[in-house]
Amino acid sequence: MPSYKEIFGASSRSRVARRTAIQRILFLIIFVIGLGLLAYSRINKDFSTSLKTGFYDLAAPVINTLMEPVYFASSVGEEAKNLVDLREENTRLAKENLKLQYYKSQVSRLRTENTELRKLLSFVPDAPSKSIAARVIATSSSSFVKSVLINAGQRQGISNGDSAIYNEALIGRVVETGKNSARVLLLTDISSRIPVMIEGTRDRAILAGNNTASPPLKYLSATNNVEIGQLVITSGHGGIFPAGLMIGHVSKISEKNVQVKLIANPDSVDYVRIFNFGLNGVIDLKK
């Protein structure tokens, strides 16, 4: 007579025990792979960079497609809001237009004067900048990381070290470039360090990201004349960013540090303009 095991196979208890054992071994393998991956991507940066850029190129079109309905719904909502605000917006624009007409005439006069003076001094002008608009297609899911993925890469002329600008203010720089996508490291990220100066006093410092919306200024001289509300701009040191790009305003001064409130909030950016100012930097970031 056949035994119970022969008819029904192993008992459910032994099956559970076997499954638990397999799971333990599997977890051990995954644990080792995870640690190995962490260590290897830490040691070999080229491996992780090539893996990431390759992945971005694969993922970018998929995310773009997934986001299309969201963009559509968002644009419909935006259109409806614009229609409601149309009259108010028209009045505001008419006033702004009057102001701009005045500034236009001033700019035209100053440009002519500037050109003449540059000719007199034989001034070497900055290289002309190239820019491209790109859409933010993905963000980091962690609160410890502040970077975004954009849908433009090497094929669109983007390279590492390019400046990411939103509403005339710097928000970050390109750190990894794929063929059709790139990753922008935001000013708020923990590893972001930007040489800046205070407009007016010309005090120099380093804007150090700390994963918050108000990054502090480091290495500010003890005899600085910084006041709340002063504009913080790029200093041009290091040769990555040109001097004069707007960043933010001094928002808090304490004994420990000086905090800067960024003009463009990187957490709410949907589009960015990527500028190539033709600067190579002291360290070659194009590699």
Partner: peptide, 8 residues
């Protein structure tokens, strides 16, 4: 991969 830091 999306975070852009250490993989793992």
């Amino acid at each position: 991969l999306f975070d852009g830091y250490q993989i793992g």
